[in-house]
Structure formats: C-alpha cells, structure tokens
Simulated scan of single mutants.
Amino acid sequence: MTPRHDPRDDGGWFAHPALSVLLAVVWLLLRQSVAPADLIAAVVLGLVVPRLTHRFIGPAANPRALGTALRFTFVVLWDIVVSNVTVARIVLNPASAPKPAWVPVPLDTQHPTAITLLATIITTTPGTVSCVVDDAHGQILVHALDCDDPAEMAAQIKQRYERPLMEIFG
C-alpha cells in the first residue's frame, strides 16, 4: 500500500531543498548582488515559497544517481540542438516530405517525476510532442514530425531518456 499525501502537511521549512537553493541562487543572480539585504531576501524566498507551494507540487523527488543526471542533462541538451537543426532543414527545404507519425512508447517506469520529465523532454525536443500519458495502458503517446520507423523511435526514446530517468529516480 502506498502512503497517501496528507493535504494538511505543510512539508516543513525544507520540504524542497533543491527548490529552496535554486530560488535563492536565481534571486541573487537576478539582483546581481550579494549585499546583506539581497542575501536575506534570497533566504526568505528560498524558505517561504517552497513551504507555501508544497501542497501544490507534492513531496520532493530524491534523485539517486547525480552523475547519471549530469550526463543525462548533456544528452538532452545535445538532442535539442540536433533536433533544432533537423527541424529547420525540414521546414526550410521546400522539397522535404516529412512523414508524421504517432508513436506509442510503452513505459517501464511508474515514478511520477520520471514520467513528467520524460513527457517534458519529449515536448521540448523540436519535432516531437508528448500528447497523452496513458496510465491505463502504461504508455506515452508521442507525435513526431518526421518518423520512418515508429518502433525504432520508441526504442530510442526508451534507451536515451527513460532508462537514465529510471536510474536517477528508481
């Protein structure tokens, strides 16, 4: 039996430590200052915002394999750059004849954060859009701008994105 999230749980002051640090750092970068007033504001934002939003964003995810997460970040960024070039070639070449396709990608992970990140990565990569996360069938439905082999694309998504996410989130 999975534990249920208590809606009255405020998560404490450090409910989302990574979000707290991120908010504080972004505040300091936006202010371009480490003056005492800005440091205090960064700490207050880093503590108060996650506490206020805890019930909306749920419990914090605890990534396990930080090295894998770092490598995965570079893989995703590289794929986004390559996809931008590919989509630009398709769009700018009047002779191109893209083959759009619906690609069902069966999911091996059940971790909600991993599934959310997978859908986000697919959508952020030009030329693909995650349209439906189908919990009943355990799959995500992806629309591809140009796809010769939907089975190969599904296998590539699983290998390049889902497998590292499963390692990171378990």
Rank of each mutant, 00 (worst) to 15 (best):
G11R: 01
P98L: 07
A97W: 04
L47H: 01
K158E: 04
I140M: 13
T125L: 12
I90M: 05
M166L: 11
P150I: 02
Q156N: 08
C147I: 03
H111A: 15
L118K: 02
L39E: 09
V85C: 01
F14I: 05
T86G: 07
V132D: 12
C131G: 14
L145V: 02
E167G: 04
V43T: 09
V103K: 02
A69E: 07
V21I: 15
R4I: 13
R8P: 00
A95I: 00
V49K: 00
F56M: 11
A136T: 09
L47P: 01
Y161L: 05
P164H: 02
F56R: 15
R71K: 15
F14S: 10
V91T: 00
H54V: 06
R55P: 05
A41F: 08
V142C: 03
L165F: 03
R163D: 13
P94A: 10
D10C: 13
H137R: 15
T116R: 06
L52S: 12
Q110M: 13
V103P: 05
L70M: 12
T2D: 13
S33C: 14
F72Y: 10
I121R: 00
L23E: 03
D79G: 08
Q32H: 15
A101E: 05
V132I: 09
F56G: 14
M1R: 13
P150F: 06
P112Y: 09
A151P: 01
P150H: 01
T125P: 05
D6E: 10
F74E: 06
L165Y: 02
T120P: 08
E152A: 15
C131F: 08
D146C: 08
P150Q: 04
A35V: 03
D148G: 14
G67H: 12
A97K: 15
L28S: 10
T116G: 14
H16A: 08
T123W: 03
L45Q: 03
P126W: 09
V26A: 12
Y161S: 05
L30H: 09
A69S: 14
W78Y: 10
T68K: 13
H137P: 04
C131E: 13
R89I: 00
G67K: 11
V132P: 02
A42Q: 02
